[in-house]
Amino acid sequence: MANEVSYSTFDVEKLRQFTIDIFLKMGVPANDAALAADVLIKADLRGIDSHGVARLSGYVRLWQKGRINPTPNIRIVHETPSTATVDGDAGLGLVVAPKAMEIALQKAEKVGSGWVSVKNSNHFGIAAYHALMAIEKDMIGMSMTNASPLVAPTFSTERMLGTNPICYAFPAGKYPPVIMDMATSAAANGKLEIAQRKDVEVPSGWIQDAQGNSTSDSNGLKKGGSLLPLGSDRDHGSHKGFCLSSAVDILSAVLSGASYGPWVPPFVAFLEPLDNQPGQGLGHFLGAMRVDGFRPVDEFKSHMDNWIHRFKSAKTTSEYTSVIIPGEPEAEAEIERNQSGIPLISVVVEDLRCLATKLEVEFPKEL
């Protein structure tokens, strides 16, 4: 039986300041603390509750275990006019990835496109944050990252890959940008964590148990199971999810020198990275392309608007009134939450209150 779920709503800027204060307590410099907080708050604003301030405790625990460097020397270790490899020096991925994306944008401004592969980083929040940075410059953005191994490849019961999200961001004119932000697993681990907080089952096809049987138990991973690739099983195309996840892993880690596959360091602090690491930390891959490298920006945006309008007017099943454009629900959530505040589930609120007490940081009052 599901636990009763309650929410509290918090002012956006007060929650942002609380998040900054937590990062400052970790020894993160002020500018980096503000940037890291912005990435997390952006997730909450866009309705991606699993990757917002609910993740704060995880970053703090990793820092306490010495696995996050609060003052990293983020540097380029290899580059060409259009590409670079960045060493994140074990910094917060929330800081490393945006700075790497800035490098990609600078290269794109000079030569038309920029591509940056990152090693020695940590969890970078929502992929959309980094891809969206390109939209502000009328560019197409791309971001992806490998992650802790929780996903079994097709025909396996062994955790070999992360949820390995990938995001594309396309600017439009009168419409919001088209943002394709998705895990390459059947479901993001964050959705599983939300189900665990609510004590509810998950849909069939998300998880398999240790023997490879489908399970709806939201605690299935804790019992030795694994997440399934996008597609769930071979009959429904899991080999395609496996291929997408593999591409993310290779571009993010094999290309950069980060650890890959089953060697990716776990996000949870009580699990130590495996011995004989083939690389350093987590890996990301970020890219930017100038639209005007292909056609005038205004023309592109006009046709993007036409694309969106036509898809929005497509015939629908009786259950739905219109097609949902990628990124549309998140854009609507961001407008609504900027006005009314950010809702947090009770278990997250309690976790943040405990964190505030431990680090002697004032926790904001709910609205």
Rank of each mutant, 00 (worst) to 15 (best):
L132G: 02
A333N: 12
K99C: 01
P153C: 13
V77A: 05
G237A: 04
D249N: 02
E334Y: 13
L227T: 05
A34I: 08
D87P: 01
D351W: 04
D305R: 10
A127R: 02
G283S: 02
W63L: 14
I207S: 08
N219F: 10
I68L: 07
S117T: 14
I207N: 03
A84I: 04
A172K: 09
A43C: 06
K14E: 11
L255M: 13
A210N: 12
A43G: 10
L271V: 08
T316N: 10
R310W: 09
G205C: 02
N146L: 15
T321D: 08
L251C: 03
S57F: 04
L228S: 02
I41L: 11
T154A: 03
V349S: 05
T321H: 13
D32N: 07
I103G: 00
V77E: 05
L251D: 03
A356F: 02
G237K: 01
V5F: 09
R290A: 04
P29Y: 04
E109N: 08
A172Y: 14
C243G: 15
K198Q: 15
Y168P: 05
E350R: 13
V268G: 12
L132K: 09
V12M: 11
G212C: 03
G231P: 01
G66H: 11
S340W: 06
G88K: 09
R159T: 08
K174L: 05
C243N: 09
M133I: 00
H130C: 05
V95D: 02
